[in-house]
Design a binder for these strands. Structure first.
Lengths: 114, 114
DNA sequence: CGTATCGTCAACCATTTGGTTGAATAACGC
DNA sequence: GCGTTATTCAACCAAATGGTTGACGATACG
């Protein structure tokens, strides 16, 4: 069984990598096949496959195989415990979604198009 | 200059270690000297000192030297960007502070008293 | 002054991480 | 059936991480 602390470990360390954060941002749009996830990155498919395993183990995505294609789906609920943990350190401003979209776009640029 | 993505990298990877999360929880109570931070952990002072450097570089704490004692102070604002990033993936329930205190206590137990 | 305390530094070590390649497995399309 | 596409596996590698120890520089105390 996984302790609470282990869950925070795996979620925070999954989120600590810019490639993995970029993948999560992409999946915010829609579910994607592994190959399509890998496409914008300057990195082997095998490397992306490993990142997806890490995201899956952290519970941040799920993967379902249909035919020869494996679909990746965002599971944002896995962020809840981490989010709650952080919220305990302060009340952060209510989310400005417009600002957030600009933020995501910029981060995506930085990551896949350096 | 530090990009947004670098800031998220350093904050999330700082938070990915249970020892460092426990330190932050301790500092929620009050500012502390390095030696006192190190006290509950079964680990050398030098190791804790390194963790504190990582937390400082991430902006999550500040350190001020008065006399021969270096005081550590929580800087929860550094979590804001990371929190906002995560919030973008879903509206997580409003924080239940009682539950959060139980949560922290349990995590602290697991970490310093295994 | 001498000594004890606070904290960091430097060197070292084992393990983990993030990437690579090439081969292997599995499902499609002709 | 056969080539092609989708994905993972295995072996390997360099660099980063998290820890140790012992020496060291500063500050405080008696």
């Amino acid at each position: 069984m996984e302790s609470m602390s282990d869950a925070l470990d795996s979620v925070f360390s999954a989120l600590a990598d810019p490639t993995r954060r970029a993948i999560l941002s992409m999946l915010l749009e829609d579910d994607m096949a592994v190959t399509d996830v890998a496409d914008p990155f300057d990195m082997s498919l095998a490397a992306i496959s490993k990142h997806l395993v890490i995201l899956t183990k952290a519970g941040l995505i799920s993967q379902e195989k249909r035919g020869r294609v494996k679909w990746c789906k965002l599971q944002p609920d896995a962020m809840r415990s981490a989010s709650v943990w952080m919220q305990g350190f302060g009340q952060f401003e209510p989310v400005n979604l417009d600002a957030f979209e600009r933020f995501l776009k910029e981060e995506l640029q930085e990551t896949v198009d350096p």
